[in-house]
């Protein structure tokens, strides 16, 4: 009887945990859209990827969680920040060309 009560508590805790992470995913997704600076967006997107990965673990999908963690932490912020750096270096070069005209 006590074991059944213990298992019921674990199942309720899992449902509460899933719902909390789901709400946080919605909040961080909205925050990522309403940021105007791409540098801040890249940091929020990396944390958003980690939240998604935790939610996938809570939904019993470990391989997808690993994929999303690896993509969200390595590939996406790296590409965004490198693209920004490249754009900035072109802007500096164009400003310098205009000054020398």
């Amino acid at each position: 009887m006590a074991a059944v009560g213990c298992i019921k508590k674990k199942k309720e805790k899992m449902i509460i945990f899933q719902n909390i992470i789901l709400i946080m995913i919605a909040v961080f997704g909205t925050a990522a859209v309403f940021m105007h600076s791409p540098v801040r967006q890249s940091i929020i997107l990396s944390f958003y990827g980690m939240l998604l990965s935790i939610y996938f673990i809570a939904l019993k999908a470990p391989e997808v969680a690993l994929s999303e963690m690896v993509v969200g932490a390595v590939v996406i912020p790296l590409m965004i920040l490198l693209a920004l750096a490249k754009v900035k270096s072109y802007t500096i070069e164009n400003l310098r060309n205009k000054k020398q005209k």
Binding site: G29, V33, M35, P38, Q41, L45, Y48, V87
Partner: peptide, 14 residues
């Protein structure tokens, strides 16, 4: 901003 646009596309894909 084009890079902001690409980040929003990431949200849609996820």
């Amino acid at each position: 901003n084009l890079i902001h646009l690409v980040n929003c596309l990431t949200v849609i894909q996820s």
